[in-house]
Design a protein around this nucleic acid. Structure first.
Lengths: 215, 215
DNA sequence: TGACGACTTGACCATTTGGTCAATTCTTGT
DNA sequence: ACAAGAATTGACCAAATGGTCAAGTCGTCA
């Protein structure tokens, strides 16, 4: 199951520790605010050792960002099939909620990269992401033509999905404060997950046509 | 209409220029990433002059944050009355969309403050914001009891509203990229605003009970 | 076992950082 | 007109920053 032979496990271990530390620092204070010494501290290696594995802070950031994009793409493909809108949307929203739960740092890094003007992922936004949106706008348009969902601007729907699901990662501090100070438990999160799916689906999917005459 | 007599207009002008510059820098790179020299550069004053008006970077940040909270509170009160859910929600969502349009930097600063763990507004979250949520949960519960909206977790509804509306501020770079590279025009934004209101309202408000028998 | 490359790290460097200060130049009220 | 406070700013400082380097230690494979 290993993709790359692990060179030495020393290298693999150290790179992993440094990348994990980098992820958490970048998520908290963004690229500009991050310091290599703080990353080294969290990874529990001397700063010089960090620079032995990753030449520059920008290199480190680029690699961390690349993993975020990869994960984003994997979730994105979960909406590809042409199922019924309710099913396709539920699957996609659920997947995004799972991502917010399991990889909140990635979501936060994405957010702070966007907020600083996306200098590093401008290209990704303009090509890959733009294409995903264009492709899926067509799907939504078809659902509208077929009378399955209300006529809505597809982009507004995508933005609502992204915003709401990622909110559970990016604003987890605020959510915890509203939850009596503690992060959502697994059960609480699962409830939220279902609730989000239910609300967003209802926001666009037409209820089944009035049952012809039965009852 | 002036609240404080403007001391000298020199002071007022300089403070305003510095605060505006600070807002834009903090919005882009957060508190940790911001530098006083960059703020001074954007305000077009020497750094020493900036420190003449604001003693420390933290002071500046605190003041900028305070204004964000004030604005947030003014929008929050727009949902207070006990109107029909559709009206109350539409007004509140519309107000939040307006805020995202007119004060996007404030929204971004809020987001980055939350992402770094909200060290500076923890108290606001745990008191003022928590109370607002508690109070309005009651309103939503009543709407549910009255059968006016579907049974939803009030917090999940608030989070969806905040997330979606603030997305138009925090992720404007990404939205522009999806819009062919240009920020939303006034008309495009107005369309989005209406669309967001429509979707969120539909996500919770029950359609009028099947019209008794007419037609 | 020994040699060679991988790994480790304290000391160091130039630059940038937040912030200070004293000397100077306005403004303004009388 | 002029004194007194308000405003301006170049020069400066200690600390922190991203990054380097040389001198070592360790792992492993023949």
């Amino acid at each position: 199951m290993q993709v790359k032979p692990p060179k030495t496990s020393i290298r693999a271990d150290n790179e992993a520790a440094i990348l994990a530390a980098a992820e958490s620092v970048f998520a908290e204070v963004g690229f500009k605010g991050a310091t290599t010494s703080e990353i080294a501290r969290r990874a529990d290696v001397p700063k010089a050792n960090l620079h032995y594995y990753f030449a520059t802070k920008e290199d480190l950031y680029r690699i961390v960002l690349q993993r975020v994009l990869t994960v984003w793409l994997s979730a994105a493909s979960s909406m590809d099939d042409n199922e019924e809108p309710e099913v396709a949307l539920s699957r996609y929203i659920g997947m995004k909620m799972d991502l917010s739960r399991t990889m909140p740092l990635g979501s936060q890094i994405w957010a702070s990269e966007i907020m600083r003007g996306a200098p590093m992922i401008k290209d990704f936004l303009e090509t890959t992401l733009k294409e995903w949106v264009s492709d899926h706008e067509i799907v939504v348009q078809r659902w509208i033509s077929d009378g399955k969902i209300y006529p809505v601007a597809p982009k507004a729907l995508f933005f609502m999905i992204w915003a709401t699901t990622q909110h559970y990662a990016d604003f987890s501090t605020q959510i915890a404060a509203m939850n009596g100070g503690a992060p959502l438990s697994d059960e609480e999160f699962e409830t939220a997950r279902l609730q989000v799916i239910e609300m967003i689906v209802r926001s666009v999917v037409k209820p089944p046509a009035a049952p012809a005459k039965t009852l």
